[in-house]
Design a protein around this nucleic acid. Structure first.
Lengths: 220, 220
DNA sequence: ACTCATTCTTGAACACGTTCAAAACCTTGA
DNA sequence: TCAAGGTTTTGAACGTGTTCAAGAATGAGT
């Protein structure tokens, strides 16, 4: 069976994630991971081409958990404000154990060549999963979001979520109180802002924003 | 005179910045800098506590140049759209020689403990200088920006500028065409969006946005 | 001119992420 | 049972950023 190989891989990943959580990114050296897992350094590299790939492992795991928890939190909530709050708060929830790790993570993730980069190739699956959460948050809301916004909104919200995550990393208040405050304040504002789309003067601006987003996105 | 010491410092900095520009961040090793400058590795570290501090040197220099060039470009331009474009385009201009270096720079800069972090302590001067540019762009515009927005707008625009810089780093189109497009599209939209503040329904939302920004900012 | 403290400079040494040739361990087929 | 071929594991070695004890150069006071 191929189980032995997979077992080693899992062992290394588990040990690494545990150490990331408990002592942070920098102190979790490849040598320390190997020693703690009872394998050689080279063996860890046989399964993970770089330390970054171990971070990627963490990223995927956190995203998966977010998908599950968010879906649960969305049940029975129908207004957009509530649905946004649900998705964002659960997002912060699943990241919480890694807060001290956050800055190193982002620093890694932001590099275009990193496997963890949320915009990059290697993270396509994780990004799609995350996008799907926002799509469901938007589509399931009643009263419904203006039709012309519905297509692009999930992506924009996801982008905003990246911003929230960035804010969270810098948030040194206890329990990241400020991030919670930001979410609670911003969610209703987004919902109200979107409802302004009915006002003729505003509608035009919205159209142009969407047009710009699309044109910049397509020209790649 | 203390000139000899300052001379060595400048030499190291100049060599480092030149190498950053020409061969990128990673290939510019501390050993290579030292060799090229004709000093020992330890000597470079006597003047710069870390490689990051050399990046900080670059950051400050680019900001200084931006201040000069932007002030020039603002002359004779009075509408907010034009002033925004001027500031943003010159910002991209001064960064241009470092585009390939950008991702490493941002990856360094985003770490809260880094001297280069634009939100951090060590960059206070550079950030203030950059903020001043946006303040002057807003204050000098006619027709004037709504009074209640005037205080907070520069900081928000600066934040948006950080976003533009991030976009620019990822922008692989030739000459960063897409970033230019984004600026040209976004500047008039911001101006038009702000003019909506007069509409009663919109005004309330604006107030709440500002309230949220302030409350999150103060609670630190 | 001669101290002596301060400033500047050196290069070996450390821990880190990463690589790689070699060894050890399977698994398969006869 | 054995040999062959593939998979997994090892640990020494490389280049990196960084540190530091030691030495050289400088300057101020006598």
């Amino acid at each position: 069976m191929a189980a032995k190989s997979e077992q080693t891989r899992q062992l290394v990943a588990d040990v690494a994630l545990k150490m990331f959580r408990e002592i942070g990114f920098e102190k979790t050296t490849m040598r320390a991971i190997a020693q703690e897992a009872g394998v050689s350094v080279g063996n860890a590299y046989y399964y993970f081409a770089s330390k970054d790939e171990l971070v990627q492992e963490l990223y995927v795991q956190v995203q998966d958990e977010h998908a599950v928890v968010a879906a649960q939190a969305l049940e029975g909530v129908h207004d957009l404000t509530g649905r946004l709050k649900a998705v964002l708060h659960t997002g912060v929830d699943v990241m919480a154990p890694y807060h001290q790790f956050g800055s190193d993570f982002i620093s890694t993730a932001i590099r275009p060549t990193s496997p963890v980069n949320p915009f990059g190739e290697a993270s396509t699956a994780a990004r799609e999963a995350s996008l799907a959460i926002f799509r469901s948050a938007v589509e399931g809301s009643s009263p419904a979001v203006a039709k012309k916004l519905r297509a692009d909104l999930p992506e924009l919200l996801w982008l905003a979520y990246m911003g929230v995550a960035l804010f969270w990393v810098y948030d040194k208040s206890e329990g990241q109180r400020r991030t919670r405050k930001l979410i609670d304040g911003a969610a209703p504002l987004v919902a109200r802002g979107l409802s302004l789309a009915k006002i003729p003067g505003v509608s035009k601006v919205f159209d142009d924003v969407l047009g710009l987003v699309r044109s910049v996105k397509e020209d790649s």
